[in-house]
Protein backbone atom coordinates (compact mmCIF):
# COMPACT_ATOMS: atom_id res chain seq x y z
CA UNK A 1 0.00 0.00 0.00
CA UNK A 2 1.23 3.43 -0.87
CA UNK A 3 1.72 5.75 2.04
CA UNK A 4 1.76 9.46 1.67
CA UNK A 5 5.14 10.97 1.04
CA UNK A 6 6.37 12.81 4.05
CA UNK A 7 4.37 10.64 6.42
CA UNK A 8 7.57 9.73 8.17
CA UNK A 9 8.40 13.39 8.80
CA UNK A 10 10.13 14.55 11.85
CA UNK A 11 8.31 16.32 14.69
CA UNK A 12 7.50 14.31 17.80
CA UNK A 13 4.01 12.88 17.53
CA UNK A 14 1.55 15.16 19.33
CA UNK A 15 -0.19 13.49 22.24
CA UNK A 16 -3.63 12.19 21.40
CA UNK A 17 -6.39 11.44 23.87
CA UNK A 18 -7.06 8.04 25.34
CA UNK A 19 -10.00 5.87 24.28
CA UNK A 20 -13.34 7.67 24.57
CA UNK A 21 -14.70 7.55 28.08
CA UNK A 22 -18.34 6.78 28.81
CA UNK A 23 -20.13 9.32 31.01
CA UNK A 24 -23.54 9.75 32.62
CA UNK A 25 -24.73 12.84 34.48
CA UNK A 26 -23.02 11.29 37.51
CA UNK A 27 -19.63 11.22 35.84
CA UNK A 28 -16.91 10.03 36.30
CA UNK A 29 -16.01 13.73 35.96
CA UNK A 30 -12.81 13.50 37.95
CA UNK A 31 -11.47 11.10 35.33
CA UNK A 32 -12.49 13.52 32.59
CA UNK A 33 -10.63 16.34 34.34
CA UNK A 34 -7.57 14.18 34.85
CA UNK A 35 -7.44 13.07 31.20
CA UNK A 36 -7.77 16.67 30.06
CA UNK A 37 -4.99 17.73 32.42
CA UNK A 38 -2.65 14.90 31.52
CA UNK A 39 -3.23 14.50 27.80
CA UNK A 40 -4.48 17.93 26.83
CA UNK A 41 -7.67 16.55 25.31
CA UNK A 42 -10.43 14.14 26.22
CA UNK A 43 -13.23 12.47 24.29
CA UNK A 44 -16.36 11.33 26.14
CA UNK A 45 -19.33 9.41 24.85
CA UNK A 46 -22.77 8.73 26.28
CA UNK A 47 -25.94 6.79 25.61
CA UNK A 48 -28.98 8.86 24.85
CA UNK A 49 -31.15 7.28 27.52
CA UNK A 50 -28.66 7.98 30.31
CA UNK A 51 -29.12 11.67 29.68
CA UNK A 52 -32.85 11.80 29.13
CA UNK A 53 -34.09 10.05 32.25
CA UNK A 54 -33.90 13.23 34.31
CA UNK A 55 -35.30 15.43 31.58
CA UNK A 56 -37.71 13.48 29.40
CA UNK A 57 -37.69 15.13 26.03
CA UNK A 58 -41.44 14.76 25.51
CA UNK A 59 -41.86 17.43 28.17
CA UNK A 60 -42.56 20.24 27.58
CA UNK A 61 -44.63 19.81 24.46
CA UNK A 62 -43.35 21.24 21.24
CA UNK A 63 -44.87 24.56 20.43
CA UNK A 64 -44.85 26.45 17.19
CA UNK A 65 -46.29 29.55 18.77
CA UNK A 66 -43.18 30.69 20.60
CA UNK A 67 -42.72 34.42 20.59
CA UNK A 68 -39.72 36.21 19.19
CA UNK A 69 -38.13 36.58 22.61
CA UNK A 70 -34.48 35.59 22.63
CA UNK A 71 -34.54 34.18 26.11
CA UNK A 72 -36.29 30.97 26.83
CA UNK A 73 -36.18 31.31 30.56
CA UNK A 74 -39.58 31.76 32.05
CA UNK A 75 -41.52 31.75 28.81
CA UNK A 76 -44.18 29.42 27.61
CA UNK A 77 -43.85 25.77 28.36
CA UNK A 78 -41.43 24.41 30.84
CA UNK A 79 -43.24 25.41 33.96
CA UNK A 80 -40.97 25.30 36.96
CA UNK A 81 -38.59 22.89 35.25
CA UNK A 82 -34.89 23.61 35.54
CA UNK A 83 -34.62 23.00 31.83
CA UNK A 84 -35.14 26.53 30.46
CA UNK A 85 -32.35 27.93 32.65
CA UNK A 86 -30.11 25.01 31.80
CA UNK A 87 -30.62 25.25 28.05
CA UNK A 88 -30.39 29.06 27.98
CA UNK A 89 -30.68 30.31 24.43
CA UNK A 90 -31.14 26.78 23.12
CA UNK A 91 -34.45 26.50 24.95
CA UNK A 92 -36.43 28.32 22.32
CA UNK A 93 -35.01 26.23 19.53
CA UNK A 94 -35.75 23.12 21.54
CA UNK A 95 -39.37 24.04 22.06
CA UNK A 96 -39.81 24.56 18.34
CA UNK A 97 -38.59 21.12 17.35
CA UNK A 98 -41.35 18.84 16.15
CA UNK A 99 -39.48 15.58 15.66
CA UNK A 100 -39.27 13.59 18.88
CA UNK A 101 -36.06 11.79 17.97
CA UNK A 102 -34.41 15.07 17.06
CA UNK A 103 -35.67 16.69 20.27
CA UNK A 104 -34.30 13.88 22.35
CA UNK A 105 -30.87 14.00 20.74
CA UNK A 106 -30.77 17.78 20.86
CA UNK A 107 -31.62 17.89 24.54
CA UNK A 108 -29.31 15.07 25.55
CA UNK A 109 -26.40 16.46 23.56
CA UNK A 110 -26.78 19.95 25.04
CA UNK A 111 -26.98 18.51 28.53
CA UNK A 112 -23.89 16.41 27.93
CA UNK A 113 -22.00 19.41 26.54
CA UNK A 114 -22.96 21.62 29.46
CA UNK A 115 -22.19 19.01 32.09
CA UNK A 116 -18.86 18.15 30.52
CA UNK A 117 -17.90 21.81 30.14
CA UNK A 118 -19.00 22.54 33.70
CA UNK A 119 -16.98 19.60 34.96
CA UNK A 120 -13.74 20.76 33.36
CA UNK A 121 -14.27 24.45 34.14
CA UNK A 122 -15.35 23.50 37.66
CA UNK A 123 -18.52 25.55 37.37
CA UNK A 124 -22.29 25.02 37.38
CA UNK A 125 -23.82 23.74 34.11
CA UNK A 126 -26.37 26.57 34.12
CA UNK A 127 -23.55 29.14 34.19
CA UNK A 128 -22.09 27.85 30.94
CA UNK A 129 -23.14 29.91 27.91
CA UNK A 130 -23.20 27.47 25.01
CA UNK A 131 -23.07 29.63 21.90
CA UNK A 132 -22.74 29.06 18.15
CA UNK A 133 -20.43 30.56 15.57
CA UNK A 134 -22.11 32.03 12.47
CA UNK A 135 -21.53 28.70 10.70
CA UNK A 136 -23.13 26.72 13.52
CA UNK A 137 -20.05 25.50 15.36
CA UNK A 138 -20.72 25.31 19.13
CA UNK A 139 -18.34 26.97 21.60
CA UNK A 140 -18.25 28.11 25.21
CA UNK A 141 -18.81 31.85 25.13
CA UNK A 142 -16.13 33.70 27.06
CA UNK A 143 -14.25 30.54 28.03
CA UNK A 144 -11.80 29.70 25.26
CA UNK A 145 -9.44 27.82 27.56
CA UNK A 146 -11.15 24.76 26.13
CA UNK A 147 -12.52 24.08 22.69
CA UNK A 148 -15.39 21.65 22.26
CA UNK A 149 -16.94 19.59 19.50
CA UNK A 150 -20.12 17.56 19.44
CA UNK A 151 -21.45 14.70 17.38
CA UNK A 152 -24.47 12.46 17.75
CA UNK A 153 -25.92 9.61 15.78
CA UNK A 154 -28.56 7.01 16.61
CA UNK A 155 -28.34 6.66 20.40
CA UNK A 156 -24.72 7.75 20.76
CA UNK A 157 -23.47 11.18 21.84
CA UNK A 158 -19.83 12.19 21.58
CA UNK A 159 -18.10 15.30 22.93
CA UNK A 160 -14.46 16.22 22.42
CA UNK A 161 -12.72 18.73 24.67
CA UNK A 162 -9.21 20.13 24.29
CA UNK A 163 -7.13 22.75 26.05
CA UNK A 164 -4.51 22.72 23.29
CA UNK A 165 -6.12 24.34 20.27
CA UNK A 166 -9.11 23.26 18.21
CA UNK A 167 -10.94 19.98 18.11
CA UNK A 168 -13.49 18.19 15.93
CA UNK A 169 -15.23 14.87 16.58
CA UNK A 170 -17.60 12.84 14.44
CA UNK A 171 -19.48 9.61 15.06
CA UNK A 172 -21.28 7.30 12.66
CA UNK A 173 -22.80 3.83 12.79
CA UNK A 174 -20.06 1.53 11.55
CA UNK A 175 -22.67 -0.38 9.57
CA UNK A 176 -23.98 2.68 7.74
CA UNK A 177 -23.97 1.80 4.07
CA UNK A 178 -21.81 4.28 2.17
CA UNK A 179 -20.26 2.01 -0.40
CA UNK A 180 -21.74 2.56 -3.82
CA UNK A 181 -23.75 5.55 -2.59
CA UNK A 182 -23.73 9.18 -3.61
CA UNK A 183 -21.54 9.74 -0.59
CA UNK A 184 -18.80 7.54 -1.98
CA UNK A 185 -18.92 9.41 -5.27
CA UNK A 186 -19.01 12.86 -3.69
CA UNK A 187 -16.60 12.85 -0.79
CA UNK A 188 -13.52 11.08 -2.10
CA UNK A 189 -10.44 12.65 -3.61
CA UNK A 190 -8.92 10.95 -6.65
CA UNK A 191 -6.20 9.54 -4.42
CA UNK A 192 -8.73 8.11 -1.98
CA UNK A 193 -10.77 6.56 -4.79
CA UNK A 194 -7.61 4.93 -6.05
CA UNK A 195 -6.73 3.53 -2.62
CA UNK A 196 -10.28 2.37 -1.94
CA UNK A 197 -10.38 0.53 -5.24
CA UNK A 198 -7.51 -1.56 -3.98
CA UNK A 199 -9.22 -2.22 -0.65
CA UNK A 200 -10.82 -5.61 -0.15
CA UNK A 201 -14.58 -5.57 -0.88
CA UNK A 202 -15.60 -6.44 2.68
CA UNK A 203 -13.36 -3.78 4.19
CA UNK A 204 -14.38 -1.04 1.83
CA UNK A 205 -17.49 0.20 3.64
CA UNK A 206 -15.63 0.34 6.94
CA UNK A 207 -12.83 2.30 5.27
CA UNK A 208 -15.39 4.72 3.84
CA UNK A 209 -17.12 5.25 7.18
CA UNK A 210 -13.74 5.95 8.74
CA UNK A 211 -12.86 8.41 5.96
CA UNK A 212 -16.18 10.15 6.31
CA UNK A 213 -15.83 10.60 10.08
CA UNK A 214 -12.23 11.81 9.69
CA UNK A 215 -13.31 14.36 7.12
CA UNK A 216 -16.20 15.56 9.22
CA UNK A 217 -13.98 15.80 12.29
CA UNK A 218 -11.38 17.85 10.43
CA UNK A 219 -13.91 20.15 8.84
CA UNK A 220 -15.63 20.70 12.18
CA UNK A 221 -12.29 21.50 13.84
CA UNK A 222 -11.77 24.34 11.34
CA UNK A 223 -15.39 25.39 11.88
CA UNK A 224 -16.62 24.76 8.34
CA UNK A 225 -18.66 21.54 8.36
CA UNK A 226 -20.02 20.67 4.94
CA UNK A 227 -19.02 24.04 3.49
CA UNK A 228 -15.46 22.82 3.03
CA UNK A 229 -15.43 20.63 -0.08
CA UNK A 230 -14.65 17.09 1.01
CA UNK A 231 -12.97 16.40 -2.32
CA UNK A 232 -10.36 19.09 -1.58
CA UNK A 233 -8.64 17.15 1.18
CA UNK A 234 -8.31 13.53 2.12
CA UNK A 235 -6.62 10.82 4.08
CA UNK A 236 -4.82 7.63 3.19
CA UNK A 237 -6.86 4.67 4.36
CA UNK A 238 -4.42 2.32 5.98
CA UNK A 239 -1.54 4.75 6.52
CA UNK A 240 0.30 4.43 9.83
CA UNK A 241 0.30 8.11 10.64
CA UNK A 242 -2.96 9.79 9.71
CA UNK A 243 -2.51 13.21 8.17
CA UNK A 244 -4.40 15.49 5.82
CA UNK A 245 -3.45 14.93 2.20
CA UNK A 246 -4.10 17.02 -0.87
CA UNK A 247 -6.37 15.51 -3.54
CA UNK A 248 -3.38 13.98 -5.31
CA UNK A 249 -2.14 12.34 -2.12
CA UNK A 250 0.70 14.75 -1.36
CA UNK A 251 0.95 16.07 2.23
CA UNK A 252 -1.51 18.80 3.19
CA UNK A 253 -1.71 20.17 6.71
CA UNK A 254 1.32 20.30 8.97
CA UNK A 255 2.46 18.28 11.95
CA UNK A 256 0.37 20.38 14.31
CA UNK A 257 -2.61 18.22 13.31
CA UNK A 258 -3.33 14.80 14.75
CA UNK A 259 -6.13 12.33 14.09
CA UNK A 260 -7.59 9.25 15.71
CA UNK A 261 -10.34 6.77 14.94
CA UNK A 262 -11.93 4.45 17.49
CA UNK A 263 -14.60 1.82 17.52
CA UNK A 264 -17.02 2.72 20.30
CA UNK A 265 -19.66 0.58 22.00
CA UNK A 266 -19.16 -2.13 19.41
CA UNK A 267 -21.16 -0.45 16.65
CA UNK A 268 -19.94 3.12 16.15
CA UNK A 269 -16.96 4.62 14.40
CA UNK A 270 -15.70 7.77 16.11
CA UNK A 271 -12.99 10.04 14.69
CA UNK A 272 -11.13 12.95 16.16
CA UNK A 273 -9.18 15.83 14.61
CA UNK A 274 -7.01 18.00 16.78
CA UNK A 275 -4.72 20.93 16.09
CA UNK A 276 -2.17 22.04 18.66
CA UNK A 277 -0.75 25.49 18.00
CA UNK A 278 2.07 24.95 20.47
CA UNK A 279 1.27 27.60 23.07
CA UNK A 280 1.88 25.05 25.80
CA UNK A 281 -1.33 26.21 27.45
CA UNK A 282 -1.86 25.94 31.17
CA UNK A 283 -3.06 22.69 32.69
CA UNK A 284 -5.39 24.75 34.87
CA UNK A 285 -8.61 25.50 32.96
CA UNK A 286 -10.82 26.25 35.97
CA UNK A 287 -13.08 29.27 35.57
CA UNK A 288 -12.26 30.63 39.00
CA UNK A 289 -8.54 31.02 38.24
CA UNK A 290 -9.11 32.55 34.82
CA UNK A 291 -9.72 35.97 36.35
CA UNK A 292 -6.33 37.45 37.07
CA UNK A 293 -6.38 38.32 40.77
CA UNK A 294 -3.89 41.16 40.58
CA UNK A 295 -5.61 42.94 37.70
CA UNK A 296 -9.04 42.49 39.23
CA UNK A 297 -7.71 43.75 42.55
CA UNK A 298 -6.19 46.86 40.95
CA UNK A 299 -9.41 47.63 39.08
CA UNK A 300 -11.65 47.03 42.07
CA UNK A 301 -9.59 49.32 44.27
CA UNK A 302 -10.98 52.18 42.28
CA UNK A 303 -13.53 53.96 44.42
CA UNK A 304 -16.15 54.03 41.70
CA UNK A 305 -16.37 50.28 41.68
CA UNK A 306 -17.11 49.88 45.33
CA UNK A 307 -19.33 52.85 46.06
CA UNK A 308 -22.48 53.73 44.26
CA UNK A 309 -22.86 57.28 45.41
CA UNK A 310 -23.85 59.97 42.98
CA UNK A 311 -25.49 57.43 40.77
CA UNK A 312 -27.00 58.97 37.74
CA UNK A 313 -30.70 58.77 37.51
CA UNK A 314 -31.29 55.84 35.23
CA UNK A 315 -33.49 57.08 32.50
CA UNK A 316 -33.85 54.68 29.68
CA UNK A 317 -33.73 56.67 26.46
CA UNK A 318 -34.45 53.66 24.31
Amino acid sequence: MTTAPGASAVLPAPSVPAEPLQVTPQGPWHTVRRELAERGSVVVFARLQDWLSDFPSDLPPATSTATGAEFGAGMGAGGDSALPALLGRDWQRFTQMTNDDVRGRFLASRLLLKYAAAAVLEARPADIDLAYKPGGRPYLRGCDQVDISLSHTADLLVVGITRRGWIGVDAELSSRQLRGSAVERQICTPYETQLLARTHQQARNAALVRLWTLKEAYSKAIGQGLRFRFTEFGFAPGARRVQVLRPDGTPGSGDEWSFCTWSVAGRYTVSLALVDLGFDDAVDVAARTMLDEAMADALLRQPQNTRWTAQREVRDPL
Binding site: A123, L140, G142, C143, A287
Partner: peptide, 11 residues
Protein backbone atom coordinates in the same frame (compact mmCIF):
# COMPACT_ATOMS: atom_id res chain seq x y z
CA UNK B 1 -16.65 37.56 38.87
CA UNK B 2 -14.58 34.47 38.20
CA UNK B 3 -17.47 32.60 36.69
CA UNK B 4 -18.30 31.47 33.13
CA UNK B 5 -21.55 33.42 33.39
CA UNK B 6 -19.60 36.65 33.89
CA UNK B 7 -17.06 35.90 31.15
CA UNK B 8 -19.96 35.26 28.78
CA UNK B 9 -21.45 38.64 29.71
CA UNK B 10 -18.07 40.25 29.01
CA UNK B 11 -17.94 38.50 25.64
Amino acid sequence: LANPHTYALAD
